[in-house]
Nucleic acid binder design. Structure first.
Lengths: 215, 215
DNA sequence: CCTTATGCGTACCGTACGGTACGGTTCGGA
DNA sequence: TCCGAACCGTACCGTACGGTACGCATAAGG
């Protein structure tokens, strides 16, 4: 502790200092552990060994803290760009299965679930600002990876579709179904986690049956 | 006002009086309007012209009130049983599209969204009791209708599948995709609502391409 | 050594909520 | 007519939270 690094210099990824990053990390930990009720300003200050006054100076108010938490967490997820290799049917399938696994893993993560619960809980408040933020930072990111993958498959003549957006929607639905909602509602993720790999494979199989060329 | 109807007699659907039903109706209105923050015991009492003491007598505590709201709302949804008529491919398709439309309509309803947000917000609290209740009363009900429909289609030799549960999961994913989550996060339902019918038809088409026999 | 900035820890304030208690009132039944 | 049960409206209590203010410690810079 006492590493400090204040003053506006030594900024990390998104315009905030390392100290502020660790504070957000602690706040995320509190959120995961006890939900929104546990995410009080006093609690964050205590858990992060900082003062409430600093919290308000850094993040403005409680909502600013929540937004910063979402932005911070989203900034940690880096999408893996798929290089334009020569795709075969089998390689495309493997890439799709890997994407499906990654998608499921992200959605079932503790922090992701906690942040989604938080944003959903605030949806009827102040124009769903957190929800839009989560949507923008989260879905857009992983959607881009999917779009690139689908486009590569189309260029290789392995799959055919009109709208990439709509096709991605179908792929998403086949992979996720209502699993995300069930986890958000509190269903034990441990029991579901064992089914992740076969689920991903079945979803991709169905997807390729729908969009695959001569399949 | 002053209609009363007290005393334990004149019970309605689920073991509660008409008076209590109207109270729950008012509470649901408050929840839809302002989210969980607006659902205070004093607010419900004021909106329903009853006393807080009566609320606690009838529902125990705040959680009891929330559970009663979910049970009450779930009790209003009646699943339409499909009679075992002779199914043709076209009739099955029409039934599936009707089911898809109904599913989308239910999920996009104000009260449904508000209750789902409520249950999700409470998911990290006391073992996700509300989430399980919502799951039990909501999904099971509409899932039964889907299962009956799928079974009828299979018996008529129009579709083929192994697990009805898994097949229903696929159908659900094709219909809903991430639309439910987006609405829960606060995305405007008006913009999405225009796309409901084509979405339902496309989903059913894809489903029949996956599971339809010869065709 | 002095000054200034930054931030921790704590105390404080106003508010709002869950839950309880009580007086007054209405209504059904004897 | 009287009794008791249910109930409304309101007041009340304890607590917890968001946000602010203050005193003190620490460290950089002249």
């Amino acid at each position: 502790m006492q590493v400090a690094a204040q003053g506006g210099a030594s900024e990390g990824g998104g315009g905030l200092t390392k100290r502020q990053g660790t504070v957000l990390e602690r706040a995320l930990g509190l959120l995961v552990e006890g939900g929104e009720r546990a995410l009080t300003t006093a609690g964050v200050a205590r858990a992060a060994n900082c003062s409430k006054e600093s919290l308000y100076k850094w993040f403005g108010d409680r909502d600013g803290l929540l937004s910063a938490m979402i932005a911070y967490q989203a900034g940690k997820v880096r999408t893996v760009e798929v290089e334009a290799e020569t795709l075969t049917a089998e390689r495309l399938r493997l890439h799709l299965v890997a994407f499906a696994r990654d998608l499921i893993d992200v959605l079932s993560g503790d922090v992701s679930l906690a942040l989604n619960r938080l944003a959903i809980g605030q949806a009827s408040r102040e124009g769903a600002k957190l929800g839009r933020l989560l949507q923008e930072r989260g879905r857009r990111q992983i959607g881009r990876r999917a779009a690139a993958l689908l486009e590569a498959g189309r260029k290789a003549g392995l799959i055919a579709f009109d709208s990439a957006e709509e096709t991605y929607g179908t792929l998403y639905g086949l992979i996720v179904s209502d699993m995300h909602l069930r986890m958000l509602l509190g269903e034990d993720t441990g029991a579901l986690r064992q089914e992740f790999t076969p689920r991903a494979e079945k979803a991709v199989d169905a997807f390729l049956r729908l969009y695959g060329v001569k399949g």
